[in-house]
Amino acid sequence: MNNNRRIKEAKVAEIKEKLQNSKSIVLADYQGLTVEEDTNLRKTLREAGVEYKVYKNTLVLLAAKELGIEGLEQYLEGPVSIAFGYEDATAPARVLHTFAKDHKKLELKAGVVEGTLYNKEEIEKIATIPSKEVLIAKLLGSFKAPLSNLAYLLNAIKEKKESESAE
């Protein structure tokens, strides 16, 4: 086996592992970004716990087919970057979508979340879902508000009874 083939097989294995371990991936067209913009994007993604890579499209297709992920062919044309989300399934879409608002050269193409393929419009909808931490905070806040109101009500009843008994 020649060295070039071994290198390609190793890359396919690497991509396959990343696809298996990620909760979501987002494909984006990054052509036209400056080096500074790309560096800022990578930094923002890294801070959000997202890995950002560029692979040969044919190698990504081979890895996806080995895992049974179908339908990526139509999105893997031209220069395509892949953002892998390992912790938060919405993070890659959210970060790329936010970055694309200010940098029109970056364009989301598609994504796979929990094994389901989504087109550009669907990925952009997923990008609007808040992070897990924000959702948990909202849930806890919705629990806290009624309990706080109940505590204020009980305290008001107690104070009223105390003032009546003092009279």
Rank of each mutant, 00 (worst) to 15 (best):
Lys8Asp: 00
Glu9Leu: 13
Glu9Phe: 10
Ala13Tyr: 11
Ile15Lys: 08
Glu17Leu: 04
Leu19Arg: 12
Gln20His: 03
Lys23Asn: 07
Ser24Pro: 02
Ser24Asp: 05
Val26Phe: 04
Val26Gly: 05
Leu27Asp: 03
Asp29His: 12
Tyr30Trp: 02
Glu36Ala: 13
Asn40Glu: 15
Thr44Lys: 15
Leu45Gly: 10
Gly49Ile: 07
Tyr52Arg: 08
Lys53Gln: 11
Lys56Ser: 06
Lys56Met: 04
Leu59Ala: 01
Val60His: 02
Leu61His: 01
Ala64Phe: 03
Ala64Pro: 02
Lys65Phe: 01
Leu67Tyr: 11
Gly68Ile: 04
Ile69Asp: 07
Glu70Asn: 13
Glu70Lys: 14
Gly71His: 12
Tyr75Arg: 01
Ile82Ser: 06
Glu87Tyr: 08
Glu87Lys: 13
Ala89Asn: 07
Ala91Phe: 03
Pro92Thr: 11
Ala93Met: 11
His97Pro: 00
His97Tyr: 13
Ala100Gln: 05
Lys101Arg: 15
Lys104Tyr: 02
Lys105Ile: 01
Val113Phe: 14
Glu114Gly: 08
Gly115Ser: 10
Gly115Asp: 08
Asn119Val: 05
Lys120Cys: 00
Glu121Gln: 12
Lys125Val: 05
Pro130Gly: 03
Leu135Lys: 07
Leu139Gln: 06
Leu139Lys: 04
Leu139Met: 11
Gly141Gln: 09
Phe143Trp: 14
Ser148Pro: 00
Leu150Lys: 08
Ala151Phe: 12
Ala151Tyr: 08
Leu154Phe: 13
Lys158Phe: 03
Lys158Cys: 00
Lys161Ile: 01
Ser163Thr: 13
